[in-house]
Design a protein around this nucleic acid. Sequence first.
RNA 1: GGCCCCAUCGUCUAGUGGUUUAGGACACUGGGUUCUCAUCCCAGCAACCCCGGUUCAAAUCCGGGUGGGGUCACCA
Length: 449
Amino acid sequence: MDKGYKKLRTRFAPSPTGSIHIGSLRTALFSYALAKSAKGDFILRIEDTDKKREVEGSREEIKNHLMDFGLVWDEFYIQSERKEKGLYKKAADELVKKGFAFYCSCKARNAKEEGYSKQLRDPCREKDITKGAVKLKVPEDQTVKYRDYVLDKEIEWNTKDVADTTLLKSDGFPTYHLAVVVDDNAMKITHALRGYDWLPSTPIHLLLYKYLDIDRPEIGHLTDILDPDGGKLSKRKGSVTVNEFLKQGYLREALLNFVMLLGWAPKDNREFFTLEEFVSVFGKDGLQKSNPMFNRNKLLWMNSQYIKESKNENLKTKIYKFYDGKYEKDLVGKITPLVKERMKLLSDYESLAGFFTEKPKVDKKLFGENWQDHLKNAFVVLESIDDWELSKINDCLMELVQDKDYKTGKFFMDLRIAITGNKVTPPINESLVILGKEETLERLQSLIS
RNA sequence: GGCCCCAUCGUCUAGUGGUUUAGGACACUGGGUUCUCAUCCCAGCAACCCCGGUUCAAAUCCGGGUGGGGUCACCA
């Protein structure tokens, strides 16, 4: 079906069941990019047809996240509100009337129930029932097929393998299957990108488009993101929601950029994109067909790249906000340039720069051989410096090292340990400048016997 | 198990029948720069799942096997 003459419209249709999953972010991003790369519309539709699973506040969280990532929608819908208008009931009625669906008043069954075994044909399909849930009356031995937009391949099923699926629940809410078909049509969606997990239920939707006699959008299935330990990315082995990654100190830009490359790749293997750049280069040809594994290492690397490329001022603000004001803003600003090449996560700031605000507990076993001598002379030299600035400190300390014929590395290591309590720190002289003369001398003094 | 999808270095991938001793990135290893670490630079390791076909020629096309993944709710 050629829809080239129509305005391209995509949608992101999450259900409000909790914080947004990293895979959902990707689906949203790809849908957004597909629409925007063609100057089309991106629609946000909340699929809240299961009252039991809805999590309070997640609707707002989804909106806020999308907004924060720059994935701004052109239209917004909520399915429960549309349900009130009778849109789904109307479609279900039409199907029953045409003989393509039937009522079933049996008790709802759940796959998790003991002794439950799925039967493709529902016994109620031949009964004369007029209330309860509405189910699809799947025909025997027909072929349903479509060409997948992402796989770029024709996929077909025989209806003997398709179940009489529930379309309208007895509470009047539609299931996903009915809702998605009715709404994609009503909202004039031209391209529907969704997760691989929806592929097996596509024949149901295909049948519905046919029976309802409406156009269907292009349907494309995005790869599943796999967990390094096997299976789909799962909660068990670490973070999976955007919120969790943010809390760990990942930057939004890095997260979004990383997700761009999860199931999509450009011809030239370029790796860094802003949202705008991504939109301009995005194309369905780059969409991957096999499931990518979630490589946390690479995400970490990408995050470190984003931190390194950040403007000091921006990074300062991000660190300040990340710690919710715990560290004084101006001080963070001074320290930021010293730590930014050492940080992979915003949360690395504390371990790297904590010594600026908190006196370290120094383990004397860390010191080298002449540490007392090193520290005493460092104290004397530093105390004599009046204008406390980097070049002066550098010069005086190097002069000391040469005069006393110290090993440069050994001397500075002892100084480093005395001041920070750690062997791994930002450049020590720069740190002294920020720490101030008084505090520096105090820390040295406390260790000299 | 039925149905369906997929298959290039450990991972993400480029490659669309000859230009390929298969390229890049992460990770890893070695070296250089450096007051530590990190950054940065250089080098190295490392892959076309298997078996058949088609073709003068196959990572690229076809078939089978194997492997991985998804799905089988009045959840999405």
